[in-house]
Every structure is written in structure tokens, then in C-alpha cells.
Simulated assay, not measured.
Amino acid sequence: MTSHPPLRTDGIAFQRDGRMLIDDVDCTVEAGSLTALVGPNGAGKSTLLHLIAAAEKPTAGAVELDGTDTRTMRRRARARFTALVEQQAETELDLSVLDVVLLGRSPHLGALSGPGSADVDIARTALHRTGASEFSERRFQQLSGGERQRILLARALAQEPALLLMDEPTNHLDIHAQLHTLELMRSLADEDIGVLAALHDLTLTARYADKIIVLDRGRVVASGTPADTLTPELIQLVYGVRADVIPHPVDGAPLIAFSPLESAASVDASIHSGA
């Protein structure tokens, strides 16, 4: 029996209004792997996640989930296999938190069936894993942005996906909640789920990710382990800043310290001096 990775993209491209947003991207996410998408704002991270989740259709190329082209998959089959946690946690639905999480069970229910006790148990477990059990009876619209982010992650977990897509999952979260979320992502990967997440903090990315895909202007400019990709040279090329990669004084994990390029600092100084 052939084993397929949860995700493989083959030369996918995407244009909007004549502008190429994703350009010939190949990537693979293995089961049991936490893969991070990094790159500056506008690099195409969110767009790529939407293409993988079939929220957008590629202009060219193909997306395969478990070896099957998404263009031939029924919507329910895709929803059972993959879940997307969006960056924006907005909704017009006036639902309790538990009901929002139970929406993640929809792909597993019959057309006329409501959630049963087993589905409620799965939803409550998802809330517990995201540290949000205390919110279960509150109204979703009454929550803060960070609290909503955790609830949407719980909804995705309730889908029981083989592939979890996350767009800035630590957005709006305080430091404690960021670390809790990243630890959860790491544990999900260790449970043989494929996790693909767009992240901004390069130090936290280097600490938790097995693999990093670096995007710049819609193209993959590097792919590999944190040590192979997050080099001072690549960071300067992609982000336009100087970076020093140093070991953490306690456990040796990589820490990345940033400073502006001298040329950028000189321009800024000349502006303020009136030159």
C-alpha cells in the first residue's frame, strides 16, 4: 500500500487582477511534521494556505491531499481531511463557544443529523486542549481577539483533520498563550498530524518547527530545517535586516537578534537630520 504525504503541491500559481501572488510553488508536508511558512508581509503565506484549503482555485498546478487532487474531491471529504484556522477571528453568528466548536463536527454528521454526545465530548476535549474550557458557555462575540483565536483552533481540532492549516495562529495572543499554542501544535504533529502554519516570530519558529518554507514575493526561496533556512544571509535577503543567530543560554535553542542594515540606518539618519 502506497503511503502519501497529507499535502503535496505541484507548481501551483495564482493570479489576481493580473498580479502573480503565488508563483510555481512546490511544497510537501509530511504526517507527524510541523512545517512553518515564513516570509515578509505580502509574501503570499495566507494566499498559499487558502489555495491548499480550496478556498481559492490555483491558476496553474495542482494541490494533492493524501495523494488525491483537490479538484476531484468532494467538499465534505476535504473538510474531513483538512482544517484551516484563519488569521481573522470574525463571525456574525451569535453562538455559544461550545456551539462554535461543534461546527467543526459538521463534516462528520449526516445531512439531517445534529451533534450527539460523542461529538460534544470531542468538542469539549478540543476546548480543553486549547486552554479554553472556561469559555464554553460564553457567547463567541463577547470574547477578545485572542480568546476567539483559541476557539477557532478548537473548532479545527474538533474536525479531527489529518492536515491542519494555520494562518498566524499566535495572532492576538499574549506570550503565555503563544507558547501554549505552539506546544499544542508540536504535540499535534507528534500525534502524526501534518501541521502547516504561517508564523512571524522567527525565533519561536526555529524552536518548534521541523521544517521551514521561506516565501518571498510568491516564490519559495528556501526550504529545509531551521538551521538550513534561517541563516543570517537569507534573513537579510528576504527581510532586509541584519540578523545574528545565537544559542539560547539555557538550552542552546537558536535565538535570532535583529538590527537594521547600515544603509537603512544611514537613510533614516539623513532624513531626521534634514540632509
Rank of each mutant, 00 (worst) to 15 (best):
H4I: 02
P5C: 08
P5T: 06
P6E: 09
L7E: 09
T9I: 08
D10G: 00
A13T: 14
R16Y: 15
D17A: 15
R19I: 15
M20K: 09
M20C: 14
V25E: 02
C27S: 02
C27A: 11
T28I: 15
V29A: 10
E30I: 02
L37H: 01
V38N: 00
N41K: 02
K45Y: 06
L48M: 04
A55D: 07
E56A: 11
P58Y: 14
T59L: 05
V63D: 08
D66M: 14
D66H: 12
G67Q: 10
G67V: 13
T70D: 01
R71I: 06
R74S: 12
R75A: 15
R76E: 08
R78T: 06
A79G: 07
A83K: 00
L84A: 09
E86I: 04
Q88Y: 03
E92P: 00
D94I: 05
V97K: 03
L98E: 11
D99W: 01
V100L: 13
V101F: 05
L102N: 04
L102D: 03
H108A: 05
L109Y: 14
L109G: 12
L109V: 14
G110K: 09
L112M: 14
L112H: 12
L112I: 15
S113W: 08
S113Y: 02
P115V: 11
D119K: 03
V120Q: 09
V120K: 09
R124D: 06
H128D: 11
R129H: 04
G131M: 05
S133M: 10
E134P: 00
E134T: 13
E134M: 08
F135W: 12
E137A: 15
Q142V: 13
L143S: 07
G145R: 05
R148H: 07
Q149V: 09
I151A: 07
L152P: 00
L152D: 01
R155A: 15
A162H: 15
L163W: 06
D167S: 09
P169T: 11
H172Q: 03
H172S: 06
Q178A: 11
L179W: 03
T181H: 03
L184N: 07
R186Y: 09
A189K: 01
A189L: 06
D190Y: 07
G194M: 07
V195G: 03
L196C: 06
A197R: 00
L199M: 15
T203F: 02
Y208L: 05
Y208R: 00
D210E: 00
D210S: 05
I212T: 01
V214E: 00
L215M: 02
L215W: 04
V220C: 12
V221Y: 13
V221C: 13
V221M: 12
A222R: 04
S223K: 07
G224R: 07
A227M: 05
E233H: 15
L234H: 09
Q236V: 02
Q236K: 10
L237G: 07
V238S: 07
G240K: 00
V241Y: 03
V241I: 15
V241K: 02
R242T: 06
V245D: 04
I246N: 04
P249F: 15
P249M: 14
V250H: 12
V250Q: 13
V250C: 10
V250D: 13
D251N: 08
I256M: 02
F258S: 01
P260F: 13
L261I: 09
A264L: 07
A265P: 01
V267H: 06
D268Y: 10
D268C: 07
S273Y: 04
